[in-house]
Structure formats: structure tokens, C-alpha cells
């Protein structure tokens, strides 16, 4: 049974459908990336899952308990980190975590042990006596993450945790999240930084205008998207050097530009990059890009162009996102 099951979830504000009939599930030990443009309904969904808002329709079950009907039973099972970290400026890191540990009804030695373990996990031990106002954004974010872990929740809901972080802090966050998933926690994370998500997520859900457009394991979503994207990028390398290579490159460029569907060709050193795009209005069929690549390779080989490598660029979440969404906001 999935740890989190969302079925037909909707949240309407008058005529505005902030979330419109979305369904997905999340297993323990997996990380689900929640992807969508601003105003897509990510935060609203996350707030409902975190028992902070009430849906207009649909059901959300966390470990079989209804988030709507039994919020008190669900809250101990989840840790929620909003897009604003919510730290108290005039408290030290230790005081802040100790306060929340008290609020989670952890007592005496148990509380101390838990706070120490969270500080160690998040790398906060050296900062224990520092006021949170004096911390960098990355460190504040770690304090906030530490707070969500105090009561050892089974589901973590993180709303844009990587927003505004420098590359180092992002990489460190990524490692922390992977470690949490390895501990068996389910993580639901939303972010605009799709390259980050593609590296840590097992599954993803793409949402736009409140509707779920694609969901499933990342590789499956990418496979599905590959069949639906109307363009693909290819890169080929030629063998040789000096004038012979120059000639071969010019020949390849000319030949490729003569082929239908090839939109753009550029030469960089010994490589040729090209963009293949379907005619406007032509619907992409599964495998069309592989067929096109095979045909181009045949043309080059037949013309005796010394091709030593020929590969399509791998699709990533960014491509999937751009393909599936239409940039519409509500």
C-alpha cells in the first residue's frame, strides 16, 4: 500500500480552479518531484497534504488516515517545510530546535537526543549557539529541514526548498534528501530547478493550471515525453584532422541542411550539432526522432562522411516540462 494516496483532489476558489482533480501516490523511500510553473497549484496541493487547507473535493490518505477528516492523527506523520523557512530571528539554532521538540511533546533526555541527532544529520552542531538571523540562507534552510525531522515523520513535504540557494548548498541539500529517502522516508518536493529534481527524484508529477499533466517514474515520463516532443537535438563527431576534416565538416553541414526536418546545423570544432523538428501541425508519433536520426546517419554514411560518433541528446526533466506544459498561468 502506498504511504500517500491522493485521489481526485480539487481546490476551487470561486471560479478559479487552483487544483483540479489530481491523483497520484507516493511510496516510502521514494522522492517525488512536484513540477509546475508559478500559480500551477503546487503550493495549494502541498498545503492540503500538510493539513493546512481543506480541499473542495477528493481524498488524501496518509498511511490510510484521511488528511481532511483526521488531521490530528496525520500531523505526527508528516514534516512540512513551506517556501519561507519560518525561523525565529532572535533564537539560537539550539533554542529553535529545542522549542519545536518541546512543541512536538518530546521530553527530557529523549528531546535532547533527538535534537542532537537532527543537528548532527543536518550539519548544524557547530552552529548550535548562533542566532538564526546570523545564518546564511543555506544554513537557515538546514535549520528548517532539521525542524521538520524532529518528530521523525514518515512523509516530508518540501515546498521549493532549493529556491535561492547557492550551488554548494543545493548539492548539500540533494545529498541530505537522498539520505532521508535511504532511511525510508517519502519525500514530496517542489522546485523550479529541474536539473536538481531530475538528479534526486524517483518519480515526478507535472502540474499546470491545477491539472496533473504527467506523473510516474522519471524515466517513464521522459520516455513518454520523447514520443511527444516535436523536436530533437543530435550531435555527431567526425574523424580526421586538418583540411580533410574541414572538408568533411562542410560536406556534412551541406548534406544535413538539404534533408527535410533539419532546422539548424552548427559546427563546433570536430563536432556538428543539429536540430531536427517536425513540420508545424504534424503530430509526433512514438519513435519518430529515432527514425529521423537513423535516416540522417544513413545519408551521411552513404556520402562517405567519416562519422565516428552520432548520438541524440538525452531528454531531461526540463525538456519533459517544456513539452508537457504550455506556459499557461491562472
Amino acid at each position: 500500500m502506498s504511504l500517500l494516496t491522493v485521489k481526485g483532489l480539487s481546490r476551487h476558489y470561486g471560479p478559479l480552479k487552483a487544483v483540479d482533480d489530481i491523483s497520484f501516490s507516493l511510496e516510502e523511500g521514494t522522492i517525488l518531484g512536484f513540477i509546475g510553473p508559478n500559480g500551477a497549484g503546487k503550493s495549494t496541493t502541498m498545503r492540503i497534504l500538510a493539513t493546512l487547507d481543506v480541499p473542495t473535493a477528493g481524498s488524501v490518505l496518509l498511511d490510510g488516515k484521511s488528511v481532511v477528516d483526521a488531521p490530528d492523527q496525520v500531523r505526527p506523520l508528516l514534516g512540512y517545510m513551506p517556501d519561507r523557512y519560518g525561523t525565529y530571528d532572535d533564537m539560537t539554532v539550539l533554542e529553535f530546535l529545542d522549542f519545536f521538540a518541546r512543541a512536538y511533546r518530546l521530553k527530557g533526555a529523549e528531546r535532547k537526543r533527538r535534537v542532537d541527532s537532527v543537528m548532527e544529520f543536518a550539519g548544524l552542531t557547530p552552529l548550535a549557539d548562533k542566532l538564526t538571523v546570523a545564518l546564511s540562507k543555506g544554513m537557515k534552510q538546514r535549520v528548517a529541514l532539521g525542524r521538520t525531522l524532529l518528530h521523525d515523520p514518515r512523509l516530508l513535504i518540501l515546498d521549493e526548498p532549493a529556491d535561492g540557494l547557492d550551488p554548494r548548498a543545493r548539492i548539500e541539500l540533494r545529498e541530505l534528501l537522498k539520505a532521508l529517502a535511504a532511511q525510508g522516508k517519502a519525500v514530496l518536493i517542489s522546485s523550479h530547478i529541474l536539473t536538481e529534481l531530475s538528479e534526486i527524484c524517483d518519480t515526478c508529477a507535472i502540474i499546470e493550471q491545477g491539472r496533473l499533466l504527467a506523473t510516474g517514474p522519471v524515466h517513464e515520463v521522459l520516455q513518454r515525453t520523447a514520443g511527444t516532443t516535436p523536436h530533437t537535438d543530435l550531435q555527431l563527431k567526425l574523424h580526421g584532422s586538418g583540411p580533410a576534416l574541414e572538408q568533411a565538416l562542410q560536406k556534412a553541414e551541406r548534406l544535413l541542411l538539404e534533408q527535410p526536418l533539419v532546422k539548424d546545423v552548427s559546427v563546433e570544432g570536430a563536432s556538428v550539432r543539429l536540430k531536427v523538428e517536425l513540420q508545424p501541425g504534424v503530430a509526433p508519433t512514438p519513435g519518430w526522432s529515432e527514425e529521423a536520426a537513423a535516416r540522417l546517419l544513413r545519408v551521411l554514411i552513404a556520402a562517405d562522411v567519416p562519422v565516428c560518433s552520432f548520438q541524440p541528446r538525452e531528454l531531461d526533466l526540463e525538456d519533459a516540462f517544456m513539452t508537457v506544459t504550455r506556459g499557461k498561468v491562472q
Partner: peptide, 13 residues
């Protein structure tokens, strides 16, 4: 304003 309220609510207080 700082949305620390929601964090307090989630603790079950």
C-alpha cells in the same frame, strides 16, 4: 506574517 504560525499548528499544539 512570517508563517511560523502554520509550523506551530503542525506540531499539534
Amino acid at each position: 506574517e512570517d508563517e511560523t504560525w502554520v509550523l506551530l499548528t503542525l506540531t499539534g499544539l
